[in-house]
Amino acid sequence: MPSLVSALSELNENLALELVQERMLAGAPPLDIVEECKSGLAAVGERYSRGEYFLGDLVLSAEIFQEIMQILNPVLMSGEKPPAAGKIVFGTVEGDIHDIGKNITISLLRCHGFQVYDLGVNVPPDKFIYWLDKTGAKILCLSSLLTSCFEAMQRTVRLARLVDQDRRIRVLIGGLVNERVKQYAGADEWVTDARRGVELCLQWNGV
């Protein structure tokens, strides 16, 4: 009998949804189903790390997981909820309008339980700060594909540090960035890989 883990790992959406329905009808605790799905996602991640899967597969698995969660959410709402991961404020910095990488990373973060506040593209520094304050998020993710926007990244991080003197907020930058850009911007870490970004956020979140 096929398992939910392997259905997700093989990106078989129909089978995965079918198995979730079967498990629910059989009275399986919804949190157990969520855990199985997470194991499936982890298997996808392993294939990605081995170079068997690529970003498209990773995102496809996240989409299947989201569909499963739509089925499970009504049941979860009425009972025990999965432990929530942290809050994240995420956006493409001022001057840049690229958002595919940002959107992919956000969808993967949501799969891991993060509550992500997506501010969109061309986001001015003060808007990031407003949302950090409003939500109490401890992770700020900034994205840009343009060298001309590194300065906006730097302004955003400086402003965040100014209002966060205890340095409780961790800043992750992504896109066309590297160690030098991280240092210039004053960020804590940099990534060019969505999955690595998720791993760092999980690490920062103490997971």
């Binding site: 990106l11 078989n12 959406e13 170079g51 690529f54 970003l55 498209g56 597969d57």
Partner: peptide, 12 residues
């Protein structure tokens, strides 16, 4: 940048 060595999954 997806250089599959094996055919991708049917869903992909």
């Amino acid at each position: 940048g997806a250089g599959y060595q094996q055919p991708p999954q049917p869903a992909t």
